[in-house]
Simulated assay, not measured.
Amino acid sequence: MIERISIVVPCFNEEAALPFFYEELESIRKKLEQADIEYIFIDDGSKDQTLAVIKELAKNDEERIRYLSFSRNFGKEAALYAGLQHATGEYIAVMDADLQDPPELLPEMLSLLRKKTYDCVGTRRVTRNGEPPVRSFFAKQFYKLMNHISDTEFVDGARDYRLMTRRMVKAVLSVSEVNRFSKGIFSWVGFDTYYLPYKNKERIAGETSWSFWSLFNYSLDAVINFSDVPLTFASLIGLLSFFVSILFLVFIVIRALIFGDPTAGWPSLVTITLAIGGLQLFCLGIVGKYVGKTYLETKKRPLYILKETDQTNRENK
């Protein structure tokens, strides 16, 4: 019996990498035993010719290639969710189009899942060669932080690249929150997961759309989605600043009783006011991030809006 593997590929400005990606996956497909591949490309509002390249590939391989095109850029998390929703295979893989996710691992991943021991075979980078040292440093600190403040396990170096069973994908899709962090969701839903180690690979073509600032914002989403420790931290800062202000008050009263009030006192007053005000604003910012995420969830907006798909194009022909 031939089993189907759905390959979910989020794409944003990947016109240069897609032909190489498809060629590489096709070479791997021919090596798979009793399995075939279904490609699901998600064009996440690309500004280049990504959609045109996908359409050309689909024209030459209508049997295997499907695609979804968003009305605008909704982000990789929305693209992942859409791809998982439309996948029809018994096994579902998530991959990037830049070939930093080694396709040659697929046969081994499939073999491990077929043994029924695991529901997911993920991948993790054991080296970060070629990555800026600053980014590598902050990435490692991020994983350390998350494993300290969250009950959900975050594996250092883990990638979105993984092969999952249908029942695990159903569990992931049941988590329908708008503010998504897939690495955390994959871990949070549970199921037995095995991680294959591999060495970091450079992009095959094109440039990454992930800047340091976008990665920083992405990490903030992870913290807010999977930990309430920052709220506790804000409360402790407020409590600490209250006790410090009491100590200052006692100190000022005692000094005035013993030595009088030799200075006007406004420098210390301004300093204390600014310090406490700054702490209040900092804590308010933490609370505001949580309130803002809650507000977005209550809107119940769709995670993405489709502009066109391969199916609609075929119906219009």
Rank of each mutant, 00 (worst) to 15 (best):
M1F: 13
I7S: 10
L18H: 08
F20A: 15
F20E: 14
E26K: 12
S27H: 14
S27N: 15
K30W: 07
K30H: 14
L32D: 13
L32C: 11
L32H: 09
F41Y: 12
I42L: 14
D44E: 07
G45A: 13
S46L: 02
E56H: 05
L57W: 03
D61C: 02
E62V: 15
F70D: 10
S71V: 11
K76T: 12
E77R: 13
A78M: 13
A79K: 13
A82S: 15
Q85C: 12
Q85Y: 04
G89I: 02
Y91N: 10
M95I: 14
D96H: 09
D98F: 01
D98A: 04
D98P: 13
L106G: 13
P107N: 09
P107D: 12
E108V: 14
E108H: 11
R114N: 12
D119L: 10
V121W: 04
R124P: 15
R125G: 09
V126M: 11
V126L: 10
V126Y: 09
T127W: 02
R128S: 11
N129W: 05
E131I: 12
S136H: 01
F138K: 05
F138D: 07
K140C: 14
K140W: 10
F142Y: 11
L145G: 05
S150A: 03
S150N: 04
E153F: 08
R162F: 00
L163A: 05
M168R: 05
V169Q: 06
K170F: 00
A171V: 00
L173G: 08
V178P: 00
V178M: 11
N179G: 04
K183G: 02
K183S: 01
I185Y: 00
S187F: 07
G190F: 02
G190E: 02
F191Q: 03
D192E: 09
Y195E: 06
Y195V: 00
K199S: 07
I204Y: 04
G206C: 06
E207W: 01
W210T: 11
S211Y: 02
S211I: 01
F212M: 10
F212N: 12
L215Q: 09
L220N: 13
D221I: 05
D221Q: 08
A222G: 11
V223W: 01
I224V: 14
N225Q: 15
F226L: 06
V229I: 10
F233N: 06
A234S: 13
A234L: 03
L239A: 14
L240C: 07
L240S: 10
F242M: 11
V244P: 01
L247F: 15
F248W: 12
F251Q: 13
F251A: 15
I252H: 06
R255K: 14
R255L: 14
D261F: 07
P262V: 01
A264Q: 05
S268A: 13
V270Y: 00
T271Q: 08
L274K: 01
A275W: 00
I276D: 00
I276M: 02
G277W: 01
C283P: 02
L284Q: 09
Y290L: 08
V291Q: 14
Y295K: 15
L296F: 03
K299G: 04
K299I: 04
K300V: 09
K300H: 09
R301H: 12
P302E: 05
T309L: 07
N313V: 13
R314F: 12
K317S: 13
